[in-house]
Nucleic acid binder design. Structure first.
Lengths: 220, 220
DNA sequence: TTGTCATCTGTCATGGACTGACATAAATTG
DNA sequence: CAATTTATGTCAGTCCATGACAGATGACAA
């Protein structure tokens, strides 16, 4: 790796560090791109050559996390039931946060703190989750030999498990033991959804892809 | 209602109509606030006196919809099981779109088309859904006599049903029979989640709010 | 009708996010 | 070292959004 590339990488990290430091100190909105650029001693224009927007910097690490989840699912054995595979993939992802190098954990926590403090960032990270769900859906559908274009079941299953994880995140409040509480809460919501979904869903999955038996579907 | 108030209401609607017309014609991003203001013959500054942002105009109607869902749930009888109450509330909301005056339906469809075409708007409307979920959670928790602060089950249930509805929306593609396909798809995903969740969840709901029996929770 | 008051509106100035164009400085390569 | 590639800085400009102020307009009472 040449000097040029090293410098670029270095500048990129410096921008991220300066950005998060400022975000945590004075808030995301209150921090201007000019401030971040000044802290790293580059021109504001250069900032936008590294990150398409201020938001992109704030959400930079989510890209890694998104990939991790996909990999975690891909690593599950092919013959594992979809619910189990998904739930365990998410569990492993969450536990990965714990067992990582403490530097990564620090980064993760800073990241969460900044995002949680800002509705716009939070909303965008949700939107990204929708993309992740699409990828997971593809994988689940592949395992089941189902066409996700016509049969909504893989998509629905992924959405349900992801919703449980999200609730687990939401239940965790910032504090000294944030990571512990996060892990515990996600475990809990995943337990709940697995226990609740398990029997009924497995039954649905056995049927063909056609119309499902509607029960009590007439409202009012 | 005085002349002043009528004029205001009129200007507001004119801005909305002009805005959506331009959004549909040339896209949301490509449409500037100045253009919308010019189309209604008001100053750009005045635009921001009616809407806090361009986005607020684009998402204006969602406020109504959000309220409708809350009302639909509140209207369900108190002794109805939570899953049923939630599912039927959403069903009624969706069917309300069908039975509404055709003008409202037109507006709804335009609205959907603009939002679906823009990732940022789509993401923000999701984020708003999170707020709706909070309100629904409060209502469900009240019905069950549960404290939503310590017990994640009401929150989880709402998140699961809402996820099903969202998948129903996602499965529906724009076209001549968008509304029909939307209704059918949401019905379908709600059927699925009700059928899958029904037995298992009811069992969970019978237990006390304490730790749920974990099954197969050791990953790997 | 008239005069007062509240409110809506336009104009102006400003700041922050972001982009295109161009020139300069630096690294890479031969 | 020279030539090429690439990163960076500077500059100008657009768009979104907001505060301040003044003028226009509807509301209302005398």
């Amino acid at each position: 790796m040449g000097l040029r590339e090293r410098k670029k990488h270095q500048t990129r990290l410096a921008l991220i560090d300066a950005g998060f430091e400022l975000f945590l100190a004075q808030g995301y909105e209150a921090t201007t791109v000019d401030q971040i650029a000044a802290a790293v001693d580059v021109s504001p224009r250069t900032f936008f050559r590294y990150f398409g927007s201020k938001e992109e910097l704030a959400l930079d690490f989510t890209v890694e996390y998104e990939e991790l989840i996909g990999c975690a699912l891909a690593a599950r054995p092919d013959d594992e039931p979809p619910i189990t595979a998904l739930a365990r993939a998410f569990r492993e992802f969450i536990h990965g946060m714990e067992t990582n190098a403490s530097e990564d954990t620090e980064r993760f926590l800073r990241h969460r703190r900044v995002i949680d403090a800002n509705p716009v960032l939070l909303c965008t990270s949700f939107a990204r989750m929708a993309d992740v769900e699409k990828k997971l859906t593809t994988e689940i559908a592949r395992r089941q030999g189902i066409d996700p274009g016509t049969d909504p079941r893989p998509r629905l299953l992924v959405a349900l498990i992801a919703a449980a994880v999200r609730v687990g995140f939401e239940c965790s409040v910032d504090g000294d033991h944030y990571l512990d509480s996060l892990v515990a809460n996600v475990e809990r919501t995943l337990d709940l959804v697995e226990a609740a979904l398990g029997p009924g869903w497995d039954q649905l999955s056995l049927g063909s892809s056609g119309q499902v038996a509607t029960k009590a579907s007439s409202p009012g």
